[in-house]
Design a binder for these strands. Structure first.
Length: 366
DNA sequence: AATTCGTGGGA
DNA sequence: TTCCCAAGAAT
């Protein structure tokens, strides 16, 4: 690649003319940019926008975030997924207040010390918020660079990732890393898309090796993922004497850590759904229940497996709840459920409980 | 190094 | 339906 300056000017010029108006591009506050970058990890721009607005309204400063209880952070994160991001954000905010004087660190190495900040996010905050000349590599940049340089190796392999980071560093324009980095990502989002890239409109098509060879549809090369296994899972909508419902908090780490749910768990081979539910409730909370009838079933696909979630109305028949295999429990009314952070699957159960019909609510009739 | 971690949208 | 993918990080 000889003409780097021409390449830089072409992309940056295009970006200046075509940059989308996004909330986190209206601020220079490193804290706000950090929040946006964490929310944008593995999450599309359109999904993030409303979460970002609510989050910054409630926690406008790192001090406000550090002072908040984790439960409130998780509640604002409800539905966004990858909840370790919310837990790490909260921990990192307290670190910033205690160890960095309330100011976000401005170097890649210091940023990397924060939980939830990896190489991408450190590069993004250092370049976009602090104007440092450092590279970044995300899914968009991987796609753009693998086409631009016609990279034939599997981008899922660590050796290829290392090579991509080296290329991202090499291609960086002096003093203009922020515009270049954001331009690469914007290009990947608007034109250099996964399935059918809009090469005729691309400002850097003249430099693109894959395009020259007609191979843009074959890049990047990615190894196939394994097929997802399927599990049947039960959940109990347990009603107590006064009509309140029993909910349990998941352990603080791991899958959906810190969120609340209707207690239950995975069905074992050759186990009935009812037996599964009674066993799980006994193991988690140490109480006995009677299973009365179905509420609804929910299909859901996580990253590495799929489930069918079977929810049942249950009655509490014996024992005081104990936090055995969970992080806590509460008896709550149907209205109070909204104060707690639930996974999407449990939100669908709640919608059925409130709707009264057997189905989640539909949109308005014409 | 290979897995684990959510959810929604699009082909 | 099924699979892929999205401003990745932690272990």
């Amino acid at each position: 690649m000889k003409d780097l300056t021409g390449l830089h000017n072409a992309l940056i010029g295009w970006f200046r003319a075509n940059r989308a108006d996004l909330p986190w591009r209206r601020t220079r506050d490193p804290y706000a940019i950090w929040i946006a970058e964490v929310m944008l990890q593995q999450t599309q721009v359109a999904t993030v926008i409303p979460y970002y607005e609510r989050f910054l309204t409630r926690f406008p400063t790192v001090e406000a975030l550090a002072a908040a209880p984790l439960d409130e952070v998780l509640k604002l994160w409800e539905g966004l997924g990858y909840y370790s991001r919310a837990r790490n954000l909260h921990r990192a905010a307290r670190m910033i207040v205690e160890q960095f004087g309330g100011k976000l660190p401005s170097t890649v190495n210091d940023l990397l010390r924060l939980p939830g900040v990896g190489r991408y996010t450190a590069g993004a905050v250092a370049s976009l918020a602090f104007g440092r000349d450092v590279p970044l590599l995300d899914g968009n940049v991987i796609r753009v660079l693998s086409r631009l340089l016609n990279i034939e190796n599997d981008v899922m392999e660590s050796a290829t990732r290392r090579a991509l980071w080296e290329q991202a560093e090499r291609l960086l324009p002096p003093e203009r890393a922020a515009l270049w980095n954001e331009g690469l990502m914007e290009l990947g989002q608007q034109l250099c898309t996964p399935a059918t890239p809009s090469c005729p409109r691309c400002p850097i098509a003249g430099w693109c090796e894959a395009y020259r060879l007609g191979l843009q549809g074959e890049r990047p090369v990615r190894s196939r993922r394994r097929k997802k296994p399927h599990y049947d899972v039960t959940a109990g909508v347990i009603r107590g004497q006064d009509g309140r419902l029993l909910i349990a908090r998941r352990p603080p780490d791991g899958m959906l850590g810190g969120l609340w749910e209707f207690p239950g768990g995975k069905r074992q081979p050759d186990e009935s759904l009812v037996a599964c539910l009674k066993r799980e409730i006994r193991e988690e909370l140490g109480i006995e229940i009677a299973v009365e009838g179905p509420v609804t079933t929910v299909q859901h696909a996580y990253t590495h497996f799929r489930i069918t979630l079977h929810a049942f109305y249950c009655r509490h028949t014996g024992g005081e709840p104990q936090a055995i295999e969970c992080a806590g429990w509460a008896w709550v009314t149907l209205e109070e459920l909204d104060q707690y952070a639930f996974p999407v699957t449990d939100r669908k159960i709640i919608a059925v409980l409130r709707g009264g019909s057997g189905q989640p609510e539909r949109g308005p009739e014409p």
